[in-house]
Design a protein around this nucleic acid. Sequence first.
DNA 1: ACCTGGTCCCGGGCTCGGTTTT
DNA 2: AAAACCGAGCCCGGGACCAGGT
Length: 384
Amino acid sequence: MELEERIARRQATRDDDLLVDRRPLNPAVHLAEPVGRGTVLERLLDVFDPVFDRRLPPDAAVYGPKGVGKSAVVNALFARLNDQFGRRKQRLGTTTRAGTATDTVAFVHVDGYRTTSEFQFYHRLLDALVDESVPRRGVGTERLRERFVQQFASPTRKAVVAVDHLAGENSPSASELREWLAPVEEDVALVVVGRSVPDEWSSVTVHVPAYRHHALVDIVTERASQALTSNALRHGQARHVAEWASGDAHDALAAVSSAAELADDDDADRIRASDVDAGIDDVPDEGVHLGRVFALPENRRTVLSELLALDPTPPIDDAASAIADRSDLSAGTVKRFLYELAEHGVLERVETDATDGSGRRPSRPEPQFPTLPFRRFDGDARPE
DNA sequence: ACCTGGTCCCGGGCTCGGTTTT
DNA sequence: AAAACCGAGCCCGGGACCAGGT
């Protein structure tokens, strides 16, 4: 920790709040330096080894269960490698004459949650590769693709593109990505990141295993020490949460974050057992990652936060009209959003037992993500 | 048979960048 | 140079239709 940070923390603690800085506990935000992922990093560096000779590495699939730091590792590694081997961004349409510059390999990391169409795919890549702003509207997909392909007109220009969160409901599939990259397949390597290896994947694979217990305890302890006053989270509590999360850092951080907020709201001077229990309780089994919720379009997120304000959750129809009253969306649209979110696993429809009259029984939309951290962190610390 | 919940899908409007006309 | 126009993707609204329960 830097000296300045330490001093800032002292100042912040003067009002003796338990919670000094909640950001390190945000489960959707990765640390610049991944903890406990040494072997995975080595394995990835093996795959990317050709780049040290300025050659293009092979395609690769990075896979492993939820919350084990796949994105964290790829994100951190790509940032460093791009600093090392990527060239400064260049203007659209200008290419360096062959031989006047050394070969460069740009490393670009895009999020599949936010990249749902071919247009957006090229847009994000161009945004990372060129200096000037890339139009979001008013220009066709065809045109963007041409500009993208043009980036690789120079034989010295290459790129490694990582697409995160593959196999999400709206995320593109590996075969779609291959199609989109087909015009530049000689110059671009594709790295896919997801829960499993895509079908018919014939290139390299790198497995990211769940965190071991002690590694997860380290992560929780490290982040808690940055976020809270000292000893606010006891070691036994960290171990307890890590045990419960069984290797899933997202769930563990969500639980600790909620526990800290609850304790802080009560002006407690340390996290109590009841806070930990409540924090754990707020994290659904088999829920979705908060990062995925934060990646939703703004209107869906406002619908979600309005939904959380309704307690207890009413049946979908009532919920939709209540939310519509408080927003500028129509009840029909809100209803459709709720059904879509349930379809994508963000909400779960729970059948009510109300049997008023005839017709099919309605269901209530229950959140399938940690709601306390959602309320605290939505809007801030969103990448891109 | 009838009712209500749930799914699917498409037209139109919005916004923004590019292009043509004034 | 400014203004008017056009066309791109995206989002909302809502209708048509299907599913499940009495």
